[in-house]
């Protein structure tokens, strides 16, 4: 193909479209991101380590990554449940349910943050009854977790749903015919087939939650060392013109996220052959 194109491709526009794409990509994405990769090192290696080992930075990184992990985990059973209902059942209102799932994608993060805060504030619709039983959500790390779950849920549903649809019911029926109980069929036939998709959904929800800013800062209360997320620290560093320090936190966040996604990819690759064989 490549050599044929070099001679004469009947379809014109390769050079133009590739040129536009590369220019657009370089100017908007690659050059700016290279600044992120290079700026922290103005501090020197020891300076970067010092910037990152600040107690407040560590607490913020721990909160961002910890809640992102927990929220992505919590979204898996919920996402599986919703995907199951969307694929396997027909009932009035199913389309509404389907559209509702995408709401966190479509709702601007600042609006989501405001809405969740209103809902979970001590006098809110959910906050008031929760306060009765002694659970505080707004202005606590738990609020960070709730906001992250909100933005991550569609990823869990939308990655599992198509796989569940393609899977069909034949394998389950075969398992049942061969004497498997219903629970056994679900755990040993359906769940393993969904595992790669669940992992992908987990990874996407996690990546989104780690970097999430708008929907979290309203409900978090942003108390240093307690409910302050890493992106907020970046904003504060930038406002104090500590560009290198801000870039160091940003680079650390990206590096850990990409390592986590890489690890996930490896687990998926390892899962795949055993499943299909």
């Amino acid at each position: 193909m490549t050599t044929a194109r070099a001679h004469r491709d009947p379809l014109p526009g390769f050079g133009l479209s590739l040129g536009v794409t590369l220019a657009w990509l370089s100017l908007i994405v690659l050059v700016p991101l290279s600044a992120l990769a290079l700026r922290p090192w103005e501090l020197g290696v020891s300076g970067v380590i010092r910037a990152l080992s600040d107690a407040r930075v560590l607490a913020a990184l721990r909160l961002s990554f910890g809640s992102a992990l927990l929220s992505a985990l919590a979204n898996l059973p919920l996402g599986l449940l919703v995907a199951w209902v969307l694929v396997r059942m027909r009932f009035p209102g199913r389309r509404l349910l389907d559209a509702m799932v995408d709401l966190p994608f479509a709702l601007p993060t600042a609006v989501a943050g405001l809405a969740l805060t209103a809902l979970f504030a001590p006098n809110g619709w959910l906050g008031a009854p929760l306060k009765e039983i002694g659970v505080a959500v707004a202005y606590t790390p738990f609020g960070v977790f709730v906001a992250m779950m909100f933005v991550g849920l569609p990823f869990a549903v939308r990655t599992v749903e198509p796989v569940l649809r393609d899977l069909g019911t034949e394998a389950e029926e075969a398992a049942a015919t061969l004497g498997a109980g219903r629970a056994q069929a679900l755990v040993r036939v359906v769940l393993p087939a969904l595992a790669p998709a669940l992992l992908t959904g987990f990874g996407l929800a996690f990546a989104r939650a780690v970097g999430e800013y708008g929907s979290v800062i309203f409900i978090a209360g942003n108390r240093p060392m307690v409910s302050e997320i890493a992106p907020l620290l970046i904003v504060q560093r930038l406002e104090a013109f500590d560009y290198a320090g801000a870039a160091a936190i940003g680079l650390a966040m990206l590096a850990v996220s990409f390592l986590a996604l890489l690890l996930l990819g490896l687990v998926q690759a390892w899962l795949r052959p055993g499943r299909r064989g």
Partner: peptide, 12 residues
Amino acid sequence: VSPVISGMVFVL
């Protein structure tokens, strides 16, 4: 990429 980082790169 986190939205905050997306903005930060242009400040850098």
